[in-house]
Design a protein around this nucleic acid. Sequence first.
RNA 1: GGAGGGGUGGCAGAGUGGUUGAAUGCGGCGGUCUUGAAAACCGUUGAGUCUUGAUCGGCUCCGGGGGUUCGAAUCCCUCCCCCUCCGCCA
Length: 425
Amino acid sequence: MLDLKFIRENPELVKQGVTNKNEKDTVDEILGVDKVRREKLQRVEALKAERNKASQEVQQLKRAGENADEIIIRMRSVSDEIKALDDELRGIGDQLTELLSWVPNLPHESVPVGKSEGDNIESDKWLPEGFSFEKPEYVVDHLEIGTKLDILDFERGAKLSGSGFPVYKGKGATLERALINYMLDYHLQNHGYTEIMPPLLVNADSMRGTGQLPKMAEDMYHMEKDDLYAIPTAEVPITNLHRNEILNEEELTVKYCGYTQCFRREAGSYGKDSKGFLRTHQFNKVEMVKFAKPETSYDELEALVADATDILKALNIPYRILTLCTGDLSFSAAKCYDIETWSPAENKWLEASSCSNFEDFQARRANIRFRNKETKKPEFVHTLNGSGLATSRLMVSILENYQTAEGTIIVPEPLRKYTGFDVIG
RNA sequence: GGAGGGGUGGCAGAGUGGUUGAAUGCGGCGGUCUUGAAAACCGUUGAGUCUUGAUCGGCUCCGGGGGUUCGAAUCCCUCCCCCUCCGCCA
């Protein structure tokens, strides 16, 4: 959520940012409603001040044993007027909140202006020694090798749940689990994160807090009976851990890291990159979340990207980093880097991680603050998160980049102590 | 699913319908004392919002919503959440 006062004082800036993000510009509508609201607010508050004063007088008169009927009768009508105005204000307030909840975060000034993913900028690239974009003859895509080695079973997954629900089998399941454990341990031991294992079902307040609601409602699984949502990312429960809390400045930066399964309906994206792991309804992800002081949040963002790419380097997987342009930024993000890994079989880069700074956008929605040591006043924290990383996309990279001419998969060295085997097939 | 108890400031915990934004304790901050620290003592310490250039000031907030009243943390209705016990189950 943007600060209403900020919108009021910088309408042109907000309009520009919203337009650059390809979102609807409702600034004038918001300012109009806001103006009406403030006028009525001032009126009702003046009436309330009058009422409060009169109530004191009634008390004093009664104590003195005098008659207060005149005031009481007068205040009766004032109270009615207050009630009517309050009703009106509630409606206006709801309208304003609704309008504000649809306003996206503004892009940071360092974000390139652009319309779509074609305008993203490649800001870094890392290739293992001896790597070539030339695909070896024998390399087949992850679906084919996974089926052949009997480690992935999408067909039975479809029988159980529908398409997009993968089944991992045998060494495939073990490899997946190894990846998760390896990444978690890496972040805990080398990057100073604290592990969190959160609920996978959360309430609507949590979804609003991180900005999934209202915009992404159609993309989430919703349990109607209990009004709970299946999390699309661990970002939701982990960021909301501190919803409605005031943190101590000394505690910052708070760094959490957690593994969860993630659930996405992916409504409207059928047929688009939908083969095998490229787009699934359920997948595994290790997520990193930070609560930072405003002045350090952009440094923390760079560190977050480094934390994620450390893993790819250790696994020897080619990757590149994209700085997303304004048009490709998500609703809540002020700045975002995508990390993409190379898929030889698809002959393209696949997104394996997204690292974002939300500045105070989520914090304002979720009311996450810290007490400024100097001013002693609470201020909104900056929240950040990044995948570290999504295993399904990593699995594609491993199954393709570690394929041998014999049709086997070499287990990346760092994962071996977790898998207990060196080769699949 | 059944029965009961409870939701008050960072925490614990009082609160007769009328200077209660809220006693008290702890914690935090500042100070006295001390070589320094602890202890002790003194003082101080909620958030949001409107108005203003900034103060001053106004208003709101005792789980959420509604009601009664001139006036509600306090009375009534309703919803939510938490805890304990019983039942069922992993």
